[in-house]
Design a protein around this nucleic acid. Structure first.
Lengths: 351, 351
DNA sequence: CTGAAAGCGCTTACAG
DNA sequence: CTGAAAGCGCTTACAG
């Protein structure tokens, strides 16, 4: 009736708890014969190590944490998070680690509400490390996690490795080049980048990378800040193009969106503005997803391997937790998935 | 340097550990003066209860678990899961409980791989209860969780309450009626329901509810099984309509899809078949999401409150964990969000 | 190769 | 109202 524990196994086998523990953990100190007996009884009785007891004596929780600072109403519509979680989970599952997830709404104005969660998790010893998303300029999490000495990995971040932290950095420049070259080859000479939240490090990196490659290819560009939602992507697009004549020199013939949601919002805006895609405007998304595939027209997108980003990040974090020297990991740059939204510019007579 | 514990607080205050513990946990047995002193020092030193120690002595992990049995490659594209997780998290956060998440790919053929996770979590004492998704016919989790005596809630399930389990049941019949009436009012007399995975309990309930209401309103219907993916929703639609003449009597003038992904897949199929929406075929989705809003045309959908389903489920589970009598909770039926995909049937001369 | 013992940080009867 | 003690289930030096 009572739960099966190491003590109960030891008693039934007439041995000490220590020997049973050694046998169960595959450590030296017991004969192979003894070990086999222990393992067989444990399997028979369905023994599992009590995770709290083990965590208490080892100061290891065997769990890593993720705090998503995102409006719960929005988070459902962003394929990115679930995809990266799936990748993370694949590694954690393999290595018998667990994922602790928290979703908190961003406080309007006040201090970020996620910070308290890291503090608490660390204080409670509930996680061995955390995966960090959406690194921003002067991110308050960086000093906090250093103070807490909690291992962490900046997923897709630009942060340098420290004693207990590292980053999986995405090749923003390579990705930007892929996009800009594709546009250049198709005759685009003026483009717009509709970015996600401007305070995010990776958006700054992308904007400047797009700018750099565009200018070196003789393409002029404009950057507009949006917020990764479809609704705002739509509004930003309308604001950008309102009042511009498609035939004008400064009319952007291609719109590059920071994610799939803004891209579909953009398509909707273009429809309302009576602009045809790709005949008058081409559209490219930085993230691919089902939305890009099934929108009309389907949207060309960078084929970033989001699940792989999750896998690499989780793997890196577990290494740091286990005491390995932190080192940043660079993700490969992505190819472009061509779809109907990306077209060739027809030269205007006046050019 | 060392971590701040109850023992260290007691020492600094010159009191026993027991008194400190009572003070910290708001229990009787200490004077208010003592309590205030303890609390103030604890706050100053940043004390947090070690979760493992607390869990070990209380046999409570303060965490609930979710196992998603889903292909990791697909899970990112399903807004449903992230939305329900956000709702669940809102309650867990309020009540200082934690969420343990695992995503496992369905084994092809062999035993379901999620079962071992429940076994392990239970044996390790890692979670106090679990939330179950996608209840299917003769679900093997039901006997397993009873055997483990692990509290659980069937999210959107039809399962009856037992000693340690309950369900948040969705009013499938009410939802079906909403859809069917909307179609009936618009003159539809033959419809098709493209369902999700046929082995799921809630899909069986929906199909039969749609059938019941349709027949009582003099509408004939056909059910086609798909699998919740956009790709298969597209294929199923093509298979359903291939060879049918739009003017024929048995041509369904409305297609109802079991979720948003299949609905956008369906739109894509209709475009390929050269059928216009809503002039020739109306489309309705059982789940609403950004995809329905931004597809073209936008897709009418049931406005089910998925986050609320998550909130109710989490709340119910926590009640059961705390020893309350399990009782099923019925979710309200949803209204229909009218959008351009839902149109009126023009009577054919031959009818 | 094995056993007796201390310790991880908490909670909780039980005496005073 | 407070303190000394046992216990939750594990791990890990330390003796034998």
């Amino acid at each position: 009736m009572a739960n099966v524990t190491i003590a109960s196994l030891a008693q039934q086998l007439g041995m000490s708890k220590a020997s049973v523990s050694y046998a169960l953990n595959g450590r030296s100190g017991v004969s192979e014969e003894t070990r086999a007996k222990v393992l067989s009884l444990a399997a028979e009785l369905g023994w599992y190590p009590n995770s709290s007891a083990r965590a208490l004596s080892q100061s290891r929780s065997e769990a890593v944490g993720i705090v998503l600072l995102r409006d719960p109403a929005d988070v459902g519509s962003e394929p990115f998070y679930m995809s990266v979680l799936a990748g993370i989970e694949a590694i954690l599952g393999e290595r018998e680690q667990n994922l602790m997830l928290r979703i908190v709404a961003p406080e309007t104005g006040a201090e970020r509400r996620d910070l308290g969660v890291y503090r608490r998790w660390s204080g409670e010893g509930r996680v061995d490390g955390v995966l960090l998303f959406d690194e921003c300029r002067n991110d308050p999490r960086a000093p906090l996690l250093t103070e807490l000495a909690l291992p962490c990995v900046w997923v897709g971040g630009a942060h340098g490795a420290t004693a207990r932290s590292a980053a999986t950095s995405v090749d923003q420049s390579g990705d930007a080049l892929t996009v800009v070259e594709a546009l250049s080859e198709r005759g685009h000479r003026r483009i717009a980048y509709i970015s996600g939240l401007a305070q995010l490090e990776h958006e700054r990196a992308r904007s400047s990378a797009v700018e750099k490659h565009a200018s070196s290819l003789g393409i002029s560009m404009v950057v507009v800040a949006s917020d990764y939602t479809a609704a705002d992507g739509e509004m930003a697009t309308i604001a950008l193009l309102a009042g511009l004549e498609p035939a004008a020199r400064d009319f952007p013939t291609a719109l590059v969106y920071g994610n799939d949601l803004m891209a579909v919002g953009g398509l909707s805006a273009l429809k309302k503005l009576g602009l045809s895609v790709p005949e008058q405007v081409s559209v490219v998304s930085w993230d691919d997803s089902i939305m890009c595939q099934f929108s009309s027209p389907p949207v060309a997108a960078l084929q970033r391997d989001i699940a792989e980003l999750g896998r690499q990040s989780a793997s890196l974090l577990l290494d740091i937790v286990q005491g390995h020297e932190p080192h940043n990991v660079r993700m490969q740059s992505a190819g472009l998935r061509q779809r109907a939204s990306l077209g060739v510019v027809r030269r205007h007579p006046n050019q």
